[in-house]
Design a protein around this nucleic acid. Sequence first.
DNA 1: TCATAACCGAGACGGTACGTCTGGTCTTAGT
DNA 2: ACTAAGACCAGACGTACCGTCTCGGTTATGA
Lengths: 203, 203, 203, 203
Amino acid sequence: MADNIAEQTRRTPNPRRRSQRARNAILDAAAELLGEVGYARLTMEAIASRARVGKQTIYRWWPSKAAVVFDVFTRLTGSEAGEPLPDTGDLATDLKTVFRATADEFVDPTMDRTTRAFTAEIQNDEEFALAVYEHLTRPNTEAFRNRLRSAQDSGQVRTDIDLDLAVEMFNGPFQHRWLLRTGPIDHAYTDALVDTVLRALRP
Amino acid sequence: MADNIAEQTRRTPNPRRRSQRARNAILDAAAELLGEVGYARLTMEAIASRARVGKQTIYRWWPSKAAVVFDVFTRLTGSEAGEPLPDTGDLATDLKTVFRATADEFVDPTMDRTTRAFTAEIQNDEEFALAVYEHLTRPNTEAFRNRLRSAQDSGQVRTDIDLDLAVEMFNGPFQHRWLLRTGPIDHAYTDALVDTVLRALRP
Amino acid sequence: MADNIAEQTRRTPNPRRRSQRARNAILDAAAELLGEVGYARLTMEAIASRARVGKQTIYRWWPSKAAVVFDVFTRLTGSEAGEPLPDTGDLATDLKTVFRATADEFVDPTMDRTTRAFTAEIQNDEEFALAVYEHLTRPNTEAFRNRLRSAQDSGQVRTDIDLDLAVEMFNGPFQHRWLLRTGPIDHAYTDALVDTVLRALRP
Amino acid sequence: MADNIAEQTRRTPNPRRRSQRARNAILDAAAELLGEVGYARLTMEAIASRARVGKQTIYRWWPSKAAVVFDVFTRLTGSEAGEPLPDTGDLATDLKTVFRATADEFVDPTMDRTTRAFTAEIQNDEEFALAVYEHLTRPNTEAFRNRLRSAQDSGQVRTDIDLDLAVEMFNGPFQHRWLLRTGPIDHAYTDALVDTVLRALRP
DNA sequence: TCATAACCGAGACGGTACGTCTGGTCTTAGT
DNA sequence: ACTAAGACCAGACGTACCGTCTCGGTTATGA
């Protein structure tokens, strides 16, 4: 799924001939440089140079810096977007588990920087925004919504609630705090968040 | 308050001699260009040219593109950051009023673009992030928290809640939806948001 | 003789396997493109593409753009370099015949362009210069010198003259005029040239 | 006169603001590099880098590599194009003086390379050819023709000769020998050349 | 009051990076 | 096995902006 953004818009060099060596070198270099200088000062030229690759080789397969970083990100998370949330039957516990894991992920500075880069780029580039929405946001939201629906079935969540709003109630505050750096993001915080939101959702 | 960001760090040319004509021309030009090409493709050179102003005149008074846009923004909102929220005694009504107004503001595309520009820039520029936090985020949060405290006093909000989290519960989902464009932002939405969050906060 | 330049320096893929179809297509394409865009903007890539041939197929058999054009040229002239000049016994008439023919050849724009390409390339590439000297200039000069020697034997040319200089006296002005485009090159001109130079060479 | 080529076609940056420091550094760098790698492998990037100058500063004042080298050349010769030839009354002596000096000039490898670069470029770029013709070839030819006319007046040269052809008779062989490197260019050669051509021109 | 310092418009400057183009080499199917 | 196709590394191209630095010209105090 990594390359979908690119593949949509390129006028198709033959992907069967693509050099895996080059692809990996580029993503490695981009990831390293992201960690070193951040997204804003990341340049295609530096990536090419670090990866010992011609610039054309990058432009052949990715339309923009954002697209490269997108693939860095998807390679980073490992897990597929849209994976179902755990479902032990106890919604509170399951959500706490998920958000604790997410909080832990954001401790990694590369993860943090990459995600910030995304968020920035989404504001300036609608096409990129759409791609991210399709490939990341929507699948994850869908998975989240499924878990909440399951909780509705077992009577843990009111049935008269808009599930899109419900999902936002969890993700929004988390994102807000991380984005504006208005407070710490630790397990205590995520547990409190889950508990508080659930109070609004319970029948 | 407009120029605070700038004034902090410049080694102070004499502001009494500052040309108001130039200042306005620059902000006007920046605002227009923001609307036309967006923040990412906004250049200092274009601003200077459009404003019929030397580049140095911009750099003399603002340290960066972000700082110019910051002043565009503050001139745009008119209202001061940190203004107290209305307090009729009825928290739900007051918050609905506030969020309806906010939703209305974001209909203006210049407002939308400027705010997105901010959000993007905050991710890439920590210094700018700090300035925005000091001059916008913190005062507004503080005002919001004051209104919630008042509601606690009148028994409309539980006293065992972390007010920072409470504020985030309102602003986070709103921002999340706007940022990722995951749904419409209208009065129906903001009303539902306020109602749902309040359910979690009530004693 | 056509490919000698190439063949000298390659570490010789088996020439028996060489595709004549490809060879001709390449030379045809090069000749066409020479006429269309000139030597400077002629690219190996364009030749390959026009000839529907892989770039490697060109590089396999020719070391450079210049070498390809060299073969275009030799195929173009048809006549071998170093062919003896006509010898009717009347030097003036013979030389006028030769130079009229040469003047006529240079009317063909492909011929003109190819020769200019040569002249340019000779200035920048000593190796190529040497090859051209060996395969074109020297044989032709030698043939010219032979004709003058024959004229010395029949008493039409002084015997105390340096024949290299004598050859130059004919070719130099012609080339000079053509190279710098300082005047027309027609039969009247070449006749006048021959007459004038012969005045200096007569006993 | 150096910059005329450029000045004709640029859409006029203000030449009063031109940095002489930069101009000289660029011409110095170009001259050095010409000597080191030759014209074909001379790049704008290398000139800029060697001169510690932005590329734009080169492109601002010269339209092409050829134009830069043109100015290198005119700075090199020092003497203006179109200077009158010496006129002691003795044509043979005067011309021998001139051609000996020219032969000496071409010993300098930078001079040699620069002139070769010219000759090459003239073949490929008609606009450049025209500029060289206007600023160098024509004035020099004119000066030469004037000297021959003076010799006609004093009875040293036939009056029924085409002066353009006469000039070519001197310059053509010289250029031919230099261009194709078919022989040494020393004082013995130039003296012999003058003597031989004059034999054809005498009444 | 008028000298003089400062700001002003303009834009050249040394640089960095862009995205494209071509050169020459290497790899992959396919015939 | 050799070809055509074309991806690969490399690096120059000419352009766009960056942020700094002169240049005169024009205010607008403050001596």
